[in-house]
Design a protein around this nucleic acid. Structure first.
Length: 466
RNA sequence: GGUCCCAUCGUCUAGCGGUUAGGACACCGGCCUUUCACGCCGGUAACAGGGGUUCAAGUCCCCUUGGGAUCACCA
């Protein structure tokens, strides 16, 4: 029983998007579950479109999600000699041949075939050439069988079969000598000993050609699992116009990696009625067989709900750390003022994203906000002013400012003055936060502390416009 | 168009021949309450259509319809 080996093989032509992240996650989970290896390979044979920035962005995204790899990253651009070797091998065995047709000729034939309603497949012009044409540019084509069928048992979709006659002689090496995708994946997956290929749905049509290549090369064929696409709300393939698709964009919008992981895994997979899964839960509960066969619509609302859940239940200390960059973005200096962790605790229940949480901290740190005249009049009525003044007096005398003590203090104030909690809480809230929505007034006072609370109350009572 | 895949509430899904078709998000009520939230309770909402097979079909088969993927010297 040899170990399972899985891989994630993105092409570095952009950022790590949610679809890619999900297939990476599935690969990672299966590797961890089976105690195998997870390998990262960068498919950069298209030198023109590949960039180092993209590689960095992809690695950053995976690291953020917590998906670590055991081997790699390997770069296909380092393997050109290996591909070349395999092309020669196929050529020597007569399993591949040189084709001298020019792109223009092929294009013409393709158009003609389409116009006549025939399949636009390679017509085999060079298939039976017996001699090389010296000096002429050529591509190398794989000699694909003309009859029979190629089938495989997809771990997710079940048995899928193709008639070989539908497949044409694919190009494995370009005129410039570089190998093409369908060839390099096979060589790499074979030589890296990949046992299961988990990849996007959009590759099912490539699979039979690849299987034929494995067989022609004498390599064992791996298992395949094709995960369904992620769709936008209009059921078309998820793209930018549906909103953010880059995983890192979600971090920047204040999402937690565990929320993203949880969301992504539940899109197309389930475990009874459970909704909340940590990476550790998933390692034991995930199975590729229970991934659904149909495409799923990306639902930002549910992601948001999960994010809120993880913020609510998260460790305040960690959240405080994660919050710092968002505060800096807003120019909020949290080193002056209340302890950030304490601030976070008052905001966890009412923040769905770290961005929202950052907004929630503003009144704590920017204490000298303006009170606008209308609100001042509305909240600080003469009666309310009296209550606030009383509150100040009581706060100054209090020796304990714990939550319960503050509650008692308010209780005593209300019964002494014969007013409802609301009558004093709302004016106080406005005076302390500058707004009408905030964490509980006791919490706010507790976090602000006596001095700052009193200062703000007095400031509000004395506030003059300008 | 050819090939391949898919089809349960608006969305993610449970269901693996016999269920009042369950859960979650969203939505709508109510409760809690010092605001906003959170939380709790309740509600609306689905087996695409048609044929079979079977005592019995959301579950199995076929067709139709609809959706998606792919048809490059891109990956």
């Amino acid at each position: 029983m040899s170990e399972v080996r899985l891989r994630f093989a993105p092409s570095p032509t952009g950022y790590l998007h949610v679809g890619g992240a999900r297939t990476a996650l599935f690969n990672w989970l299966l590797a961890r579950k089976e105690g195998g290896k997870f390998i990262l390979r960068i498919e950069d044979t298209d030198v023109a479109r590949s960039t180092q920035e993209s590689v960095d962005a992809i690695l950053e995204g995976m690291t953020w999600l917590g998906l670590d790899w055991d081997e790699g990253p390997f770069y296909q651009s380092d393997n050109f000699p290996l591909y070349r070797e395999h092309v020669e091998k196929l050529l020597a065995a007569g399993k591949a041949y040189k084709c001298y047709c020019t792109p223009e000729e092929l294009e013409k034939k393709r158009e003609l075939a389409l116009a006549e309603g025939r399949k636009p497949k390679y017509d085999g012009t060079c298939r039976s050439l017996t001699e090389d044409v010296p000096g002429a540019p050529y591509v190398v084509r794989f000699r694909s069988p003309e009859e029979g069928e190629t089938a495989f048992d997809d771990l997710i979709k079940g048995r899928i079969s193709f008639q070989n006659e539908e497949l044409d002689d694919l190009i494995i090496q370009r005129t410039d000598g570089t190998p093409t995708y369908n060839f390099t994946v096979v060589i790499d997956d074979a030589t890296m000993g990949i046992t299961t290929v988990i990849r996007g749905d959009d590759h099912v049509n490539n699979t039979p050609r690849q299987i034929l290549l494995y067989e022609a090369l004498g390599y064992p064929v791996p298992k395949f699992a094709h995960v369904p696409m992620i769709l936008g709300a209009d059921k078309s393939r998820l793209s930018k116009r549906h909103g953010a698709t880059s995983v890192m964009a979600y971090r920047d919008m204040g999402y937690l990696p565990e929320a993203m992981v949880n969301y992504l895994v539940r899109l197309g997979w389930s475990y009874g009625d459970e909704e909340i899964f940590s990476l550790d839960d998933l390692i034991s509960k995930f199975s590729i067989e229970s991934v659904g066969r149909s495409a799923g619509v990306f639902n930002p609302d549910k992601l948001l709900w999960l994010n809120a859940h993880y913020i609510k239940t998260g460790d305040p200390q960690r959240l405080a750390q994660l919050l710092v960059p968002f505060l800096e973005q807003r120019g909020i200096d949290h080193t002056v003022g209340p302890e950030l962790v304490e601030v976070v605790k008052t905001l966890q229940d009412r923040s769905r994203t770290m961005l929202e949480m950052a907004d929630g901290t503003i009144f704590y740190y920017a204490g000298d906000f303006d009170y606008d005249e209308q609100s001042l009049e509305k909240f600080l009525t003469p009666a309310a002013r009296e209550l606030c003044a009383d509150l100040v007096a009581r706060l100054e005398q209090a020796d304990d400012l714990g939550h319960d003590a503050i509650a008692e203090l308010f209780g005593a104030l209300c019964s002494d003055q014969g007013v409802k909690m609301k009558a004093v809480a709302q004016p106080a809230r406005y005076a302390l936060t500058g707004g009408s929505a905030s964490p509980g007034i006791y919490e706010v006072i507790g976090v602000l502390g006596r001095d700052e609370t009193v200062r703000r109350l007095r400031r509000a009572l004395e506030f003059k416009k300008g």
